[in-house]
Nucleic acid binder design. Structure first.
Lengths: 186, 186
DNA sequence: CTTTAATCTTATCGTTGTTAAGATATTAAC
DNA sequence: GTTAATATCTTAACAACGATAAGATTAAAG
């Protein structure tokens, strides 16, 4: 909070928070820098003291969501005592994250799809697959298996909002059934 | 072609074609109705005689691409003589379609994700899975298997543009290896 | 206290989607 | 074939948008 009304004091963070909230509610399509500035009580040009342009602003929000996403994944891995269920639990957390905030999905993966080789959630997931199946599979199978599993979980997360396809009441069980339908150990 | 310069004669189709071309080259983000109208040699208000608004126009393009997508899938199924390879061939065609036109993917599946229960490519894919695996699997396994496979192929198509992950030179072989890494019959 | 840098406002620009009112050509009715 | 109705286009205008420049205000550094 600023003492006076000229300097806001915490504009950068407030813009990011308000932006997050807006995207969660309405999607990124109709997000406007001007409306955001107004709702923060500053002029329409003020945001450009903190962000180079709109894309730069959206990138900041994207990074923030990705961090939250990573938190969920690492927490799921940490609280999973049964090693054999690690990938299942990861998948459930993955899908559930985007089920709770469906509009984040298209926002994250539509504009500038992240480079997987430097995308922390993917790298973490790959480590988990290696930890779980590394001893059962040769190098090739492992490589293709990682891609196959990631694709499936990622694709699945994109489908969760489709009505009727997956019962929202039973996300964990449904996800588990879907994921255990396939087997990459053979 | 119109005789005079006042009436264009084929504006609706030309706009769709020009729009397709633009999205293929630059993505939908920067597409502008005005520039499109100008490139077609008409005034900026002319397109609104044929489309209610921009979203209505994009929907028309979306439908057109989906038709082309369906053509590719049905052709792949038709030319596949070996029944046991049907799903593999479908997956390869699916991924290859979006590899050839990467920007179509985010355009199609980002705005207004299609309702799968009425989405012809998905319905067709489901029929193919039932044809291929229906006798091996019970109802539940079939249901979850369809979702799992579709998710994987769909997610895979979204990852193909990521450099290094899949070698563009060997799309069919790579896709086949990835898809055959998993087994839903068990 | 003075200087420097960060942050904000005001004013303005070009671009966009969209609509209204009217002009022109095509089609249908008679 | 002339007229009436309809489809299609133009011109003009509006509000909203992203962005920038120039200058005001405050905070930080010396």
């Amino acid at each position: 909070m600023a003492k006076n009304s000229y300097h806001h004091g915490n504009l950068k963070n407030e813009l990011i928070e308000k932006g997050l909230e807006y995207i969660d509610r309405n999607g990124v399509e109709s997000l406007s820098m001007r409306k955001l500035a107004e709702s923060a009580g500053v002029s329409c040009a003020a945001p450009y003291s903190h962000f180079k342009n709109k894309q730069d602003f959206l990138k900041a929000i994207q990074d923030y969501i990705t961090e939250r996403f990573m938190d969920v994944l690492t927490a799921a891995a940490e609280y999973c005592r049964d090693r054999s269920r690690l990938l299942i639990e990861l998948g459930i957390s993955y899908v559930r994250f985007f089920y709770k905030n469906p509009l984040y999905y298209s926002f994250l993966f539509n504009r500038n799809f992240p480079d997987l080789e430097t995308y922390s959630p993917f790298l973490f997931f790959r480590e988990c697959v290696i930890m779980t199946l590394g001893k059962d599979l040769d190098e090739d199978k492992l490589r293709y298996g990682v891609i196959a599993l990631w694709s499936m979980v990622h694709g699945l997360a994109g489908l969760i909002t489709v009505e009727g396809l997956i019962d929202p009441e039973h996300i964990p069980e449904e996800i588990e059934k879907i994921l255990t339908t396939v087997d990459i150990r053979r």
